[in-house]
Amino acid sequence: MALDTTYGSAFIGLIVAAVLYGVTLLQTFFYYKTYPKDPKVIKALVAIVWFLDTSHLVLCTIAIYWYLVMNFSDPDALTKTTWSMNLQTDCNGLIGLIVECFFARRVWIMSGNGILTLIIVVLACVHFGLGVVFTVEEFLLVENTRFSKLIWVTSTGLGSAAAADIIIACALCYYLLKSRTGFTNTDSLIATLIGYSLTTGLITSVLAFICVVTFATMPTNYIWLAFFWVLGKCYVNSLLAALNSRDSLRERVKPREGTFLHLSHLPQFTTEHQPESPRSDDKSSRHLSRQGVPGSLAVNVHTQTYCRSDYDRGEDSPATPTTGKSTSRFL
């Protein structure tokens, strides 16, 4: 067996998977720190996905260590399967099932289409079920040189995963486009969500398709395995990215308290009227003082309300100010 296309490619896949696992750790920490009030079901879901992803990386590391270190001087060992290499398939399959069902729920919430949601769930279950079949067959085959007998299992399973991801991405984009309101802020948010859906769906579906093609054409090497290991990490990070992006998306529609876009609910201040400045004709100024807080910065904002009726005036007639007020904020 050629080492560069077998365990060489698997080793490279392990390195890339380890880098993506670092992103998973960062996103998991950010999630639990930012969303402590999330439902317990969502918190448990994140914990389960993180545990499966960690277990997958550990199993992959054990397998590579067994082949390249413990059996360094035994070429015959390279053609045999090991328990860690066999079990890692199920971890990725279960991760794909959970993530695809999570996004299927989003499709259901947006569309209310039970048939479409059921199709996605069935495809996800086929992906996981055939992954279990692949693991059982690996234990029975003993030698990885016989993987050509499992082409139909891998092609059908990963093909189902790719189909589910494409359906999810297309469904979310379609129903998001139908939700456009014509308002700039809302439509901009919808465009962002469409970009997220296309990115996450296309990445996982393309990786699954590459796994199918490489395994079907080169079943005796591990080029497909490198992409398969990266695929699982992409599933996990797509789920965590969807959860962690909620606050930033809400901020674009409605500013959150305590952010730089929100200046309400600030401490009370006292006002003392001063005579109008001779340089201002239609604006009034106020002297503001805040007791007990030296060195505070006050921002004085003057607003006016303009009213114009299209029935009483022409389109080019100037609007007249009706009310004016001055408000202040302390920073």
Results as ranks from 00 to 15, higher is better:
Ser9Phe: 10
Tyr7Leu: 11
Thr323Lys: 10
Ser9Leu: 11
Gln274Asn: 05
Ala44Lys: 01
Gly159Trp: 00
Ala319Lys: 02
Ile109Ser: 09
Asp187Arg: 06
Lys283Ile: 12
Tyr196Arg: 09
Leu78Phe: 12
Ala298Ser: 13
Thr135Gly: 00
Leu177Pro: 00
Asn244Phe: 00
Asp74His: 10
Pro255Gln: 02
Gln88Tyr: 05
Thr323Ile: 04
Gly201Leu: 06
Phe209Ser: 08
Ile48Met: 02
Cys173Val: 09
Leu263Lys: 08
Gly112Glu: 02
Cys234Leu: 09
Gly292Lys: 10
Ala169Asn: 05
Leu243Ser: 03
Ala171Pro: 03
Phe139Asp: 09
Lys37Ala: 10
Met218Ile: 12
Tyr235Phe: 14
Arg105Thr: 12
Leu177Glu: 11
Tyr35Thr: 05
Phe209Ala: 15
Ser285Ala: 08
Thr199Tyr: 12
Asn244Met: 00
Leu177Ser: 12
Ile42Ser: 12
Leu140Val: 08
Asn144Val: 00
Met218Asn: 10
Trp224Glu: 05
Thr28Pro: 05
Ser317His: 14
Lys43Gly: 15
Thr54Asp: 04
Thr156Phe: 11
Lys178Arg: 05
Ala163Met: 13
Ile166Thr: 14
Thr214Ala: 11
Leu97Glu: 07
Ser73His: 06
Ser317Tyr: 12
Gln27Lys: 11
Ser296Asn: 14
Tyr21Arg: 01
Leu249Pro: 06
Asp310Lys: 14
Gly129Val: 02
Asn144Trp: 02
Gly324Pro: 02
Val253His: 05
Asn221Arg: 13
Ser245Asn: 11
Leu193Glu: 14
Gln88Ala: 07
Val132Ser: 12
Glu138Ala: 15
Lys37Arg: 15
Leu231Ile: 04
Val107Arg: 08
Met218Phe: 13
Asn300Tyr: 11
Val99His: 01
Ser328Thr: 14
Val99Arg: 03
Glu257Lys: 15
Thr61Cys: 10
Thr305Trp: 04
Val299Cys: 08
Thr186Leu: 10
Thr89Trp: 15
Asp90Glu: 14
His287Phe: 15
Cys91Leu: 04
Ala319Trp: 07
Ile48Pro: 00
Thr181Gln: 06
Tyr196Cys: 02
Phe260Glu: 15
Ala164Ser: 09
Trp50Gln: 06
Gly201Tyr: 04
Asp281Leu: 14
Val58Tyr: 00
Ser284Met: 04
Ala171Asn: 03
Glu251Ile: 01
Pro275Arg: 14
Ile120Met: 05
Thr192Asn: 13
Asp74Glu: 10
Ile203Phe: 07
Leu176Gln: 05
Val293His: 12
Leu140Glu: 08
Phe260Asn: 09
Gln274Ala: 11
Ser285Met: 10
